[in-house]
């Protein structure tokens, strides 16, 4: 009786756990299903055009290059900004802060992680972009750097949390040995603990980058959405995520434009997949989780 019931329950549990695999396969399948017809007509090479002109009287052009460079520019800027705040923040919380400070800072970081991206985007639109416009004397505050600042803010919790785990997982004996040899706390932190935790910190930055590339609403609202190839932080750019969000509502299902937007999704999925995979492998290899 009991063994029979145990078997049924076991089957249900295995089935439930396996749905995650099933969902991942479904995601790849359905993105592919909607995108694939594009290969025959108008052709795969069209995706590597240098221009993205989805609506035109003459000829529509679905080159993903300007969208990819847009995403890359915003992601790199955001990464440069999030590294000092994320890594130093983690060092502060793990090694320097008092117990009371920590019990305030950690929940605060979690609250920051929970703020919806549309609210951050709204704040960027009404508060940050006018500031950027005034400081740098631009004609508009809707630029790559505006988006990057918001994205850095959103990625900082990820970087802090994972880096802090990495720092905490450095064996206490390292710290004690260093202090016993006469090193002060500063030397111990920056010459012993941080180097030992470095793989985990790098993984944390990568996870932050994964979050930044995939972020949609904030960049859609503040980067100006001009699909052009530029590496000027004060230019307006259009990211891959923003393109899908802005244009999917207006396309005819099954059109070339529709298929091209699914290609954007596939590229996005592949990029985030590998970034996350590498980061997780690093964490696993160094046992930092």
């Amino acid at each position: 009786m009991n063994t029979w019931r145990d078997k049924v329950i076991y089957t249900i549990l295995v089935g439930s756990a396996s749905t995650s695999i099933f969902i991942v396969l479904l995601i790849f399948f359905f993105l592919g299903k909607e995108a694939l017809p594009f290969i025959n007509d108008p052709g795969f090479s069209g995706l590597f055009n240098l221009r993205w002109i989805p609506v035109s009287f003459n000829k529509e052009i679905f080159g993903l290059i300007p969208l990819i460079t847009g995403s890359v520019l915003v992601t790199l800027l955001a990464t440069i900004l999030m590294i000092p705040f994320g890594v130093l923040g983690a060092i502060y919380i793990a090694e320097i802060a008092t117990g009371r400070e920590r019990s305030f800072l950690k929940p605060f970081i979690e609250i920051l992680a929970g703020i919806p991206s549309v609210v951050i985007g709204f704040f960027g639109l009404v508060v940050l972009s006018p500031i950027i416009k005034d400081i740098f004397g631009l004609s508009t505050g809707l630029t790559a750097i505006t988006g990057a600042i918001l994205l850095a803010l959103m990625a900082v919790p990820t970087v802090i949390t994972v880096s802090e785990d990495a720092i905490q997982s450095v064996p206490g004996a390292y710290r004690e040995a260093s202090l016993a040899l006469g090193a002060n706390r500063l030397q111990t932190i920056f010459r012993i603990i941080v180097p030992a935790a470095l793989p985990g910190i790098i993984a944390a930055i990568m996870l932050g980058m994964g979050r930044v590339i995939g972020e949609t609403m904030a960049v859609l609202m503040v980067t100006g959405n001009a699909a052009k190839i530029t590496f000027n932080p004060f230019d307006s750019v259009r990211t891959m995520t923003a393109t899908i969000a802005a244009e999917m509502g207006e396309v005819a299902f099954g059109s070339h434009h529709y298929q091209a937007l699914f290609w954007v999704g596939i590229f996005l999925l592949i990029m985030t997949f590998f970034i996350n995979l590498i980061a997780q492998q690093v964490l696993k290899k160094y046992q930092m989780r």
């Binding site: 995939g214 996005l268 999925l269 985030t272």
Partner: peptide, 18 residues
């Protein structure tokens, strides 16, 4: 891990397709 990293807009595309 893969699911946790899938961008939310890609979930949107998937939901639209499926």
């Amino acid at each position: 891990i893969t699911l946790a990293g899938v961008p939310s807009i890609v979930f949107g595309l998937f939901g639209l397709g499926l």
